[in-house]
Amino acid sequence: MATKKQPAEKKFSKEILIGLYMNYVLEHEHMPKSVYKFAKENKITEQQFYDYFGSFEGLRKGIWNQFYLNTMQLMHKSLEFEAFTPREKLLTFYYTFFELLTANRSYVLLTLNENPDKFKNLEQLKELRKDIRVFAKGLISEGNENKNNQILKQSETVFSEATWVQFLFILKFWVDDNSTKFESTDIVIEKSVNTVFDLFDNTPLERVIDLGKFLWKEKMN
């Protein structure tokens, strides 16, 4: 008589650990008090936790990094993505990233409003900041390759930092957005990205310098 084959046991992974942590925070509305208690409650070993993260703070940063990695994975599934312009790639990134955030909105809102000190809540975004700046540098580098005039080329450092500031602005808007299906956030994403790229694409450096000189003269008069 044939015996029924038992399903293979699912291997423990970083994604499973992240899921356990997010569920804990949502159910208890606070971070676990210790790795020992967290592991015991979730029937895992402390070693399984430390195989992936050295602390809960590291795990919290890892969750945002995972949001980024999942976003990149989803984008690159599209065969059309590589043919997109830098503007289209940044738009696609924001739309995809905030779709993932929306799917995890309860956790994100809880952790971003956990501490009265708003800047302390942003510490969990440190790794994400590195990820977004690297992504943005790649976009502006790609854009610069298509510009023959050296003076029209933009600084990768300035653009990457501007993209991070832009992301924080959109994140704050999304947190406060009460529109249906967060349609207002979609509009903000489109307008902010188009504004930045219109400036970079159509504003030669000499025009910026001329504007700066004009404003300086006006201030002095």
Rank of each mutant, 00 (worst) to 15 (best):
T45W: 03
F49K: 12
W216K: 15
F56A: 09
S34T: 14
E123M: 10
H28D: 05
L91E: 03
F97V: 06
M31H: 11
E9N: 00
K5S: 13
S160I: 02
A8F: 00
L69Q: 13
E190G: 05
Y50R: 14
P116S: 09
L79I: 06
N42L: 08
L171M: 02
I18A: 07
G138E: 04
F98S: 04
T185M: 01
N178Q: 08
K120Q: 07
R129W: 04
K147H: 13
L59M: 15
V134T: 14
R87T: 13
I18P: 01
Y107H: 09
A2Q: 13
F84A: 01
T163M: 01
E206F: 15
I18N: 07
M75F: 04
L122K: 13
K217F: 14
L79Q: 10
I189Q: 06
L79K: 12
V188M: 11
L139T: 02
G212L: 13
D131F: 05
E142C: 09
A2T: 11
T203H: 09
L139Q: 04
T185C: 01
E114A: 09
K118I: 05
P116C: 05
L199K: 10
Q154M: 04
L112V: 07
E142W: 11
E80Y: 12
K61H: 15
A136P: 01
N149K: 09
S34W: 02
F159D: 00
K40Y: 12
Y68R: 01
Q73S: 14
G54L: 10
Q48A: 15
E123S: 14
S34G: 03
E41I: 08
L59C: 07
E88N: 08
I189S: 07
W64V: 08
T45G: 12
V35W: 03
E27R: 13
L211G: 14
L152K: 10
L90Q: 14
P32N: 06
F67D: 11
L90E: 14
E9M: 00
K43D: 09
N202G: 14
L125C: 05
P204C: 13
Y24H: 15
L90R: 09
F81Y: 09
I16C: 00
L26Q: 13
W164G: 07
D198S: 12
F173W: 02
L20D: 08
E41L: 08
E127H: 13
L69W: 01
S55C: 10
F56W: 14
K213Q: 10
Y52A: 04
A2L: 10
T157Q: 04
I140E: 06
E99H: 07
T92H: 02
G143S: 12
S34A: 13
V193P: 00
V158C: 06
W64K: 11
F97K: 02
M75N: 10
R105L: 00
K153Y: 11
N42A: 11
V175P: 00
E99R: 06
L17K: 09
L91Q: 05
T185A: 04
N121Q: 07
L79F: 05
Y50V: 09
E80L: 12
F56R: 15
L74Q: 15
I170F: 02
L168E: 03
T45I: 11
N121E: 00
F56L: 14
P7M: 04
E46Q: 15
Y95E: 05
F53R: 15
K172L: 03
L90M: 11
M22L: 07
